[in-house]
Amino acid sequence: MLLAVDAGNTNVVFAVHDGSEWRGSWRIATRADRTSDEYAVWLLALLQYSGLKPAEIDRCVIGTVVPAALYNLRRLAREWFDVEPLVARATVDWGFEIRVDRPQEVGADRLLNSLASHHHYKGPLVVIDFGTATTFDVVDADGAYLGGVIAPGINLSLEALHKAAARLPRIGIGRPQAVIGRDTVAAMQSGIYWGYVGLIEGIVGRIQAEHDAHLKVVATGGLAPLFAEGTTVIETIDPDITLEGLRLLAERNPAPTLVKSTPRDPV
């Protein structure tokens, strides 16, 4: 079985695939100083609850945009599952070209989303990921990664608005009943929701104009269904696209040789 680890800025998602289907997925808050033993205590209990055994894990793949978290995630794979993890980075075999100026700077999540989206939906396409940042990634008809757009995430924008304006409260995101807010909270919700709908439609429209061809639009992330209600631009919602990218990347690349961890192992 494959253990896939998606370490984002907000959460780390662990999921197990048995070769046919995902058997379970679990998330924990991202903390760069969390040790491999802390991960193990939490994850092993969840595996047992799901009827899975650590000995059944024979592959591991890690994608992370938090470099400081990689060391202990690697130790987790080596010490508790006795496997060397494949790490998603620009130098592995993606099966497509990365047509940007500095491929090593592209976040692993963006490449993983592109890999899985092209595999499942073909191209050309745009992948929108509603995460800590809201990203738009463009994939050509042949699967090549062409670059994209990075904008502040919705929750990040809400927090910044609350902290920068003394009289504005901290609010949750939701689709307002009307564009014109009749009180402060409704006005803030409208600005965030319809403002981001405008962002989505505007950026996708400009990408379409530059590409000179129709691009399918795939969205992922927890807020994707909410924003899909407000626009016809989003054609497909796929909540597991990053995990699928990890699974496909593991299929394309050989399993690395196990390296036993020591306290002085480099990342």
Rank of each mutant, 00 (worst) to 15 (best):
Arg167Pro: 04
Leu86Arg: 05
Glu105Asp: 10
Glu201Gln: 06
Pro266Gln: 05
Pro85Met: 02
Ser50Cys: 12
Val12Glu: 09
Asp137Trp: 01
Trp194Asn: 12
Arg59Ser: 08
Ala88Glu: 07
Ser25Gly: 09
Asp137Gln: 07
Tyr196Asn: 05
Ser36Val: 15
Lys260Cys: 08
Arg206Ile: 04
Leu243Gln: 03
Asp183Trp: 04
Ser190Met: 06
Leu226Phe: 01
Thr132Asp: 07
Val100Cys: 05
Ala164Leu: 12
Gly51Tyr: 02
Thr132Val: 06
Val66Ser: 02
Leu46Phe: 08
Gly172Asn: 07
Arg206Lys: 11
Val16Thr: 15
Arg264Asp: 14
Val218Leu: 03
Gly8Leu: 09
Ala45Thr: 10
Val126Lys: 07
Pro152Phe: 00
His211Ser: 12
Glu159Trp: 01
Glu244Ser: 08
Asp137Phe: 04
Gly95Leu: 06
Gly153Arg: 00
Trp94Tyr: 06
Trp26Val: 04
Arg264Pro: 15
Val138Cys: 02
Glu251Asn: 07
Thr220Phe: 15
Glu105Met: 10
Asp183Tyr: 03
Leu161Glu: 10
Lys216His: 06
Ala15Phe: 00
Val12Met: 08
Val13Cys: 06
Arg89Ser: 11
Val233His: 12
Gly131Asp: 03
Leu249Tyr: 03
Ser261Arg: 01
Leu3Val: 11
Gly51Gln: 03
Val87Thr: 08
Thr236Gly: 07
Val217Tyr: 05
Ala186Leu: 09
Cys60Ser: 13
Phe81Tyr: 05
Lys53Leu: 05
Leu246Tyr: 00
Val87Trp: 00
Arg182Pro: 00
Ala90Asp: 12
Ile241Tyr: 00
Leu199Gln: 12
Ala228Thr: 00
Met1Tyr: 03
Arg206Asp: 06
Ala32Trp: 14
Pro124Phe: 00
Gly230Cys: 09
Arg89Ala: 13
Ala255Met: 13
Ala224Ser: 14
Thr64Val: 15
Asp6Ser: 08
Val149Leu: 10
Lys260Tyr: 07
Trp26Thr: 02
His162Ala: 05
Glu56Gly: 09
Ala133Gly: 11
Val61Ile: 13
Leu47Thr: 01
Leu112Lys: 02
Ala77Val: 15
Met188Tyr: 00
Ala88Val: 11
Arg27Ile: 10
Glu229Leu: 04
Ser50Thr: 09
Leu215Asn: 02
Val139Trp: 01
Phe81His: 15
Ile62Ser: 09
Leu168Phe: 11
Ala186Ile: 07
Ala151Cys: 12
Thr134Ile: 11
Glu79Gln: 13
Asp183Ala: 02
Phe14Ser: 04
